[in-house]
Amino acid sequence: MTEHAIVSPEEWIIARKELLKKEKELTRLNDELSRQRRQLPWVKVEKSYRFEGPAGTESLADLFDGRSQLIVYHFMFAPGWAEGCTGCSFIADHIDGANLHLAPHDVSLVVVSRAPLAEFEPFKTRMGWRFKWISSVGGDFNYDYHVSFTKEEVARGQVNYNYGMSDHAAEDLHGISVFTKDAAGDVFHTYSSYARGCDLLLGAHNYLDLTPKGRNETSTMNWVRHHDRYDDGRLVPLTVNSVAPNASGSSCCSAEDHA
């Protein structure tokens, strides 16, 4: 910090305007990328998926809750875990605020994990989250959308994740999947993204990127803790950042450095 360049206000304005040109270029590129994302073809969902939630068993179509668009966040919480992935929890901390604006915009958002409902509900209570979190236990949903993998796949050391074979082999990884439902009730898969493709959900990153120290990390999100494990506003030692137990060697999505 003390070695940083110190200039006059006039010189700072010149430098700032140069950076502004690049910021505007990035904004236009992001707008174009979003347009192309909306133009992707759709795939009709033919399989019948069942989920367990607080209100009982629901189908994929039920999750739309009367709306035509559905976002699913695939949260890493496998059967037998006592708490969720820290990176997924970081993303989940952003959901309730966004949900205030999504429902009026014809969008439902749910979180899906492979663990039974009873296993992650205490963790949800601990974190103070209000969003809808449901279980896909016993079904193919997580496997079909490439966020869960069999023990045999993991043992081979590579899994089909993020549209290619990945060495980041674990039974559960994270991602986003988006669906739409037409007037006839047919459901279509429109988009999925994985690994650092989920970064766009992390508003806290945008705040940090404005600051002189930025994200201040040595590897992707290695500083993130469950929000009740920071010490008086400061980072606790990494050893306190527990990995979910009985995870069969899987690591938190915050450890993923691949794009």
Rank of each mutant, 00 (worst) to 15 (best):
Q69C: 00
Q69S: 03
Q69M: 02
L70E: 00
L70D: 00
I71N: 05
I71E: 04
V72E: 06
Y73M: 12
Y73T: 00
Y73N: 14
Y73K: 10
Y73Q: 12
F75N: 06
F75K: 00
M76Q: 08
M76A: 13
A78C: 07
A78H: 09
A78M: 11
P79L: 09
P79F: 05
G80E: 07
G80K: 00
W81Y: 14
W81M: 15
W81N: 14
A82P: 05
A82C: 12
E83H: 15
E83F: 15
G84H: 10
G84V: 09
C85P: 09
C85N: 07
T86Q: 10
G87P: 13
G87K: 10
G87I: 06
S89Y: 04
S89I: 12
F90L: 15
F90V: 01
F90T: 11
F90P: 03
I91F: 12
I91N: 08
I91H: 08
I91L: 12
I91G: 07
A92M: 06
D93F: 11
D93Y: 06
H94K: 12
D96I: 12
D96N: 13
D96E: 14
G97C: 13
A98S: 13
A98N: 04
N99I: 14
N99S: 14
N99M: 15
L100C: 12
L100F: 15
L100N: 09
H101N: 04
L102W: 13
L102R: 07
A103P: 03
A103S: 07
A103D: 03
A103K: 07
A103Q: 05
A103T: 06
A103E: 06
P104Y: 01
P104C: 05
H105C: 13
H105Y: 11
H105A: 14
D106E: 07
V107H: 02
S108H: 00
S108K: 00
L109W: 13
V110P: 00
V110K: 01
V110F: 00
V111K: 05
V111H: 03
V111G: 07
V112L: 09
V112M: 09
V112C: 05
S113F: 08
S113M: 11
R114I: 07
R114F: 09
L117P: 00
L117C: 10
L117W: 08
A118W: 01
A118M: 05
F120Y: 15
E121F: 06
E121D: 05
E121Y: 03
E121H: 03
P122N: 09
P122M: 12
P122Q: 06
F123T: 05
K124M: 12
T125E: 13
R126T: 11
M127L: 13
M127A: 05
M127D: 03
G128L: 08
W129L: 13
W129M: 12
W129I: 04
